[in-house]
Simulated assay, not measured.
Amino acid sequence: MAAAVLRSCRRGLSRALGGKAVAGAAPPSPGGLRHKSSVQYASRPDLPKLAYKKIKGKSPGVVFLPGYGSNMSGPKAEALEDFCKSLGHSYLRFDYTGCGQSEGVFAEGTIGTWKKDVLFMLDEHAEGPQILVGSSMGGWLMLLAAIARPEKTKALVGISTAVDHFVTAFKTLPLEARKECEDKGFWSVPTKNIEQGISRLSMEFLQEAENHCLLHSPIPVTCPVRLIHGLKDEDVPWHISMQVAECVLSPDVDIILRRQGQHHMTEKDDIKLIVYTIDDLIDKLTTMA
């Protein structure tokens, strides 16, 4: 069944791109250079400005949500812009408060802070129905946004989805280790997901994150959901995607496990799969409309 779905996606994508490969989907501009979207800044009363890039186009649009400590300029985000341009669909990507080119202090950010960023961008800069694509922590924010804005969210694509991950991972530590972290006021987590190799999470961050946990009850999301996860993900266990699939109320949920897949999902074949998955959802939503 999965193979059939992927063949269907490839056929749809091939038609959309005129038979060209996914890599380099957007046609080159004169001189061999592609025109990339430029950085803009969204102003908010009494809150840091958010850096974003946007291209206008058809519905459904695509919104990309980066992971913890990441930004809107990674390989997945760039590839999705090329893809959306090639099909003429709108695309929005942005940096959370304190991340990338946005204003604010990263260490002061919380799940609640970044959830508000997502909702603001959806309300003010995303026109019409959207497919939300969330990477790692972005997958958690994606679900929170879908719950808060069901009328705007038409489908979800989670990549290495990290729902509740910070909280559940901390709770699995031995009691002595947790007590030591509480005494110090923070938890130092080795990770390959950010340049420093260590992610320092304050106890305040973890306590606030607990207010946004979703896996303890049914998740009221009814739109199509696609969850892509690598079996070799050393940062976020793949079984979290399985838990998400069990909790969401949607009758249309697919899980794709990549045997060699790692956390970042930035290999050429990983990105192709992500693009094929979104292309299939666009086709599905367009047909339904």
Rank of each mutant, 00 (worst) to 15 (best):
H212L: 02
K115H: 09
P48W: 01
L13C: 10
K272T: 14
D82F: 06
R7I: 11
T110G: 04
P30K: 00
A169Y: 11
P30M: 03
Q243H: 12
K268W: 09
S29L: 15
L119S: 02
T161Y: 05
D95L: 00
P30A: 03
V5R: 15
M72I: 00
Y68I: 15
G112Y: 04
A148L: 08
G61L: 04
Q40E: 14
M121Q: 01
L50W: 05
S38N: 06
K36P: 10
D279S: 15
S37P: 02
P129Q: 05
K272V: 13
D279I: 13
Y91K: 03
K115P: 01
A169C: 04
D233R: 07
A146W: 02
L249M: 14
I159P: 02
R93F: 01
G128P: 07
I271M: 08
T110D: 05
G112E: 00
I147V: 13
K268A: 14
A148N: 06
G19L: 01
H264K: 15
I282V: 13
C9P: 05
D117S: 01
T113V: 10
Q262S: 12
M242H: 15
K179T: 15
K49A: 12
E151G: 13
Y276L: 10
I159Q: 01
P27R: 09
L231P: 06
V157F: 00
A2K: 13
D280I: 07
V163L: 01
E103Y: 09
L249V: 11
E78G: 10
C223T: 05
W140P: 00
G139Q: 03
Y68A: 15
P75N: 04
E127R: 09
G128N: 03
L175W: 11
G197H: 09
M137Q: 08
R93S: 08
L144E: 08
A2Q: 14
K54N: 05
S38F: 03
A169R: 12
H229W: 09
A79F: 04
G100Y: 01
Q101A: 14
P190I: 06
P28G: 11
V244C: 04
D270N: 10
D82N: 08
D123E: 14
G100W: 04
P28N: 10
L273S: 02
V236L: 08
D254T: 10
D280W: 11
M242D: 13
V248L: 02
